[in-house]
Simulated scan of single mutants.
Amino acid sequence: MYDLNGRKALVTGGARGLGQGMAEALAKAGASVVIADTAEDLGKAAADSLKDAGATAAFVPLDVTDDANWEAAITATIGELGGLDIVVNNAGVELSGLVVDLDPADIRKMLEINVLGTALGVKHAFRAMRPGGPAGSGGSVVNISSVAATIPFPGIAGYSATKSAVDRLTRVAAMEAGKLGYGVRVNCVYPGLVPTEMGMKLAADMVTLGLWPSAEAAVGDVIGLTPLGRLGEVGDMADAVVFLASDAAKFITGIGLPVDGGMGM
């Protein structure tokens, strides 16, 4: 049920962190994978690592906020892999700040990358996968939201708002794809806190904002709010993406899947 042999996947923000782990998990399940990112050196290295492990993989440059960039990346992916069945809209950015001190530039950047970037990813996945598209065999889109969309965690109002938007976008897109007969399922994942570079920067930001005395204290409180009693791991999130992309989820669309150890219940 989780066998992705013959599937072709595109993962945005796949050069590092959660995105890289998702690309690796898709490849281990049998998919051919294109990593799309603005970090060209890291992206090429990540793709080379997948190839060294025996997978079919490639890198394409992609600024997710640019419509023409998306069109070129989809064309390059289909040309490289011979089709497209899975798009993982993982690319995102988190910029912390208290509501009383919100920086409009930070909010605009998160809106551009987290919301517009995901929306364009869904748009171009639909155009490629729907009947008559250059891939044309349907497929699965997995958007990456966040537990921040489900809990009132301080210091991340802008990020929480954008990740809540990803959830709403996912549900409307799933409804449209179904009603228009695209054959594309659309779901999203709510990752909990994972100690990646981005996750640890968030913990450090909480200290800078005066919300916790130390990063360790912030992380400890997150663990305290998590019934399973630990932080998430990259593999936890990657496994959820493989599930939603696979035939095990063939009758699942329009959902937000919490992978947060119960934190957002």
Rank of each mutant, 00 (worst) to 15 (best):
T226S: 06
N187M: 06
L225A: 10
S160H: 05
G97Y: 08
V242S: 13
L257N: 11
D67T: 06
T65D: 01
G264A: 15
I252M: 05
A128N: 11
A46G: 11
S32N: 02
A76P: 03
A27G: 03
A119S: 13
F153E: 04
W212N: 02
A73H: 08
E216G: 13
Y2P: 00
A215N: 09
S49C: 01
S140Y: 12
I78M: 12
A53L: 14
G43E: 08
F251W: 15
I223Y: 02
A245H: 08
A47Y: 09
D85N: 15
T12S: 14
P258G: 00
F243I: 01
L111D: 00
D85C: 10
L95S: 02
T38D: 01
L169N: 03
P152Y: 03
G254F: 10
L211H: 07
P213M: 01
T12M: 08
A149C: 02
G43C: 07
K8S: 00
L202E: 06
F153A: 12
E176S: 07
D239Q: 15
L84I: 09
R16L: 14
G181V: 09
V166H: 06
K250L: 00
L169K: 05
T253C: 09
A157S: 08
I223D: 08
R185I: 07
A73C: 04
A73V: 02
T253N: 11
T196N: 04
R168L: 04
H124K: 08
P152T: 06
A128G: 11
A76I: 04
R7D: 05
A91Y: 00
D103V: 15
A149M: 05
E176K: 13
V186T: 04
R130L: 02
A119Q: 12
P195E: 13
G155D: 00
N69Q: 14
G138V: 12
V88D: 13
T150W: 07
K8R: 06
V93T: 14
R108Y: 11
G136Q: 10
A165W: 14
M22Q: 13
L231A: 13
H124W: 11
R230D: 04
L81P: 01
S214W: 05
I86D: 11
V259G: 02
L202M: 07
D236F: 11
V142Y: 07
I223L: 03
A119N: 05
S246H: 07
S49D: 11
D52E: 15
E197D: 15
G210N: 07
K123Q: 14
I223P: 12
V219A: 02
L244S: 11
G83I: 12
P104I: 10
K123F: 04
D37E: 05
G97V: 07
M1G: 12
R7A: 10
G261E: 03
P191G: 01
I144A: 08
I107D: 03
R108D: 14
N69L: 02
N5V: 10
D236T: 12
E40L: 06
P258W: 08
V259E: 03
G13K: 02
S49T: 09
D85W: 08
A57Q: 05
P195Y: 08
A128V: 15
G21V: 02
G138K: 04
